[in-house]
């Protein structure tokens, strides 16, 4: 059997990949995918901990997270389309009307 901490390590690495992608990528769609990667890394942790504590609830949470992620995707893509219509670009560096 694969020990628990392998799963947790993989989950942490995936989460870190997502954070890195969010911070260094400039295309909005890629940034958005990085966020999805972070959520799915968390799902892996939930499942691993569910196995450790022998409770089913941890696996059920994954479904909730997936539903929320799907809702977020729907809204996110709509916002991205609206941005493209007003700017004709998907580069975050060019979406800078409001000064930071």
């Amino acid at each position: 059997m694969v020990p628990l901490h392998y799963y947790l390590l993989l989950s942490a690495i995936l989460f870190a990949c997502g954070v890195t992608g969010f911070l260094i990528k400039r295309n909005i769609i890629t940034i958005f995918m990085s966020i999805e990667l972070m959520l799915n890394a968390v799902n892996l942790s939930f499942v691993a901990f569910a196995a450790r504590w022998h409770v089913l609830s941890g696996q059920v949470f994954v479904f909730f997270v997936m539903v929320v992620a799907a809702a977020e995707t729907a809204v996110g893509l709509a916002i991205i389309i609206a941005v493209y219509r007003t700017r004709e670009t998907l580069n975050v560096d060019q979406v800078n009307l409001l000064k930071l």
Partner: peptide
């Protein structure tokens, strides 16, 4: 454009 950018 400002409102959409804020939303994004």
């Amino acid at each position: 454009a400002g409102s959409v950018e804020s939303s994004l």
